[in-house]
Design a protein around this nucleic acid. Structure first.
Lengths: 90, 90
DNA sequence: TTATTATTTAGTTAATTACTTAAATACTTA
DNA sequence: TAAGTATTTAAGTAATTAACTAAATAATAA
């Protein structure tokens, strides 16, 4: 989760996650949605992957990225522990 | 939410939230839990407050801090939108 | 009023982060 | 094999962040 919190702090990375919510995309397709160099997006993807928020899958010369929902589930539990009626530890 | 994501990226700030989950505390009581200067903790409290994750209340010479759960609720909704079963199109 | 306690604000510095361009790697196609 | 496309890695830099100490503000108590 530690890595995820840091990964989620950046608006570009949150937008990447939003894009992947709609459908799986290649690194290039993701980069096309931003006015930013491809290496920069590649770095962001690397950080999201290290945080287990996304996974990649190579298909020929392309690398497809897709969401990994497990950390989002953990995040839900974590946030719920701060709302009334839930005593669960972080 | 933008501010909240950045606020949550720091482990010291997440620990402050954990402490406030148990009970309301003064700035000094919070600072006592860390091996860090009081001004540093004060800055973290300021950031958490700007993110609407906590609120303060002055009582005499003390300032009590307590959780504000509204942004946590928003965070839950946000994270749920990434998990299966919350398909907005369904 | 003066001193004490609680806390924040200001100013500075070191570490981290988010970009950039250039080069490297990997796959595909002619 | 050589050229082209997709993507990452490397190296460098500017902006941001998180810490510190010192000073300021505010309330309390002597």
């Amino acid at each position: 989760m530690k890595e995820a919190f840091k990964a989620l702090a950046d608006p570009t990375r949150r937008k990447i996650l939003d894009l992947l919510k709609a459908k799986d995309l290649t690194a290039g397709e993701i980069a096309d949605q931003f006015e930013m160099s491809k290496p920069s997006i590649s770095q962001h993807l690397k950080i999201l992957k290290a945080a287990n928020l996304i996974e990649d899958e190579k298909q020929g010369q392309y690398i497809y990225y897709h969401l990994n929902t497990t950390v989002f589930q953990e995040l839900i539990s974590w946030a719920m522990s701060f709302t009334k009626g839930d005593d669960t530890d972080a």
